[in-house]
């Protein structure tokens, strides 16, 4: 009980307290301590990577062995992962190697394409937003439209009212970015910042223990 529950909480408290104090202490010892902590955190993180790889292989091998629905695609995933490992062992990781080519022309291409799907999705999201169900959604929509027009030359061209001294769409969009958008961001950062701080304190004090897992 002591080793399983109390000691980890003690470590959390000590490390949390020490790292918080370290920020205010500029001495040589403090700096060396910080550098050592960074080295240790990186090494621990390295072993944490093992969890990810193990989970991946376990999940997919399990699907294949049980012939779960779409198990064939799990098999493809496993084979692709093994292929990459073998390619790196045989041909190295340099540019032009099989390893890099496989990554660039398959995974990187697929990821870039999935990312580009955002262009289609943002259009359907914009269409959905156009159906503005409330005045607040209308405000979101109007701000978005002004922003979009303000970022292209056409915004200036259609701003006929500038002849009477009124600001152009580009200038309005710049004001929206610099004023209400900034105010909203600040409000969120100030609030979310407090939330993060409370969470850090709760972790250090041992009030928040979800990350340690169940008892």
């Amino acid at each position: 009980m002591f080793w399983k529950k109390k000691v980890p909480l003690l470590i959390v408290f000590i490390m949390g307290f020490v790292m918080a104090v370290q920020y205010f202490v500029p001495s040589d010892f403090s700096k060396k301590f910080y550098d050592t902590y960074i080295d240790w955190a990186i090494v621990i993180g390295i072993f944490g990577g093992v969890l990810g790889f193990f989970s991946f292989f376990r999940v997919h091998i399990h699907k294949v062995s049980k012939q779960a629905p779409n198990w064939q695609f799990s098999l493809i995933s496993i084979l692709c992962a093994l292929l990459m490992i073998i390619a790196a062992l045989l041909g190295g990781r340099g540019s032009g190697s099989l390893f890099m080519k496989l990554f660039l022309y398959t995974s990187a291409a697929i990821n870039a394409t999935v990312f580009s799907l955002l262009a289609f999705y943002i259009s359907s999201a914009a269409y959905r937003a156009f159906r503005a169900r409330s005045t607040q959604a209308l405000a979101l929509l109007l701000a978005a439209v002004i922003m979009m027009l303000g970022r292209v030359p056409i915004g200036d061209s259609i701003s006929f009212w500038t002849a009477w001294g009124w600001p152009s769409i580009n200038e309005i969009s710049q004001w929206i970015l610099n004023v209400p958008n900034l105010a909203a961001k600040r409000a969120i950062i100030l609030g979310v910042g407090l939330g993060s701080l409370l969470m850090s304190l709760k972790i250090i004090l041992g009030i928040e223990r979800t990350y340690l897992g169940s008892e």
Binding site: I122, A125, A126, R128, A129, A137, L140, A144, A184, K185, I188, I189, G191, V192, L194, G195
Partner: peptide, 21 residues
Amino acid sequence: TDDMTQLPFFITSCDYTLIGE
């Protein structure tokens, strides 16, 4: 979510969004 940059997308595509805090 608490990320300002992703909230607009959730607001337009979801039925309800918990904003930030």
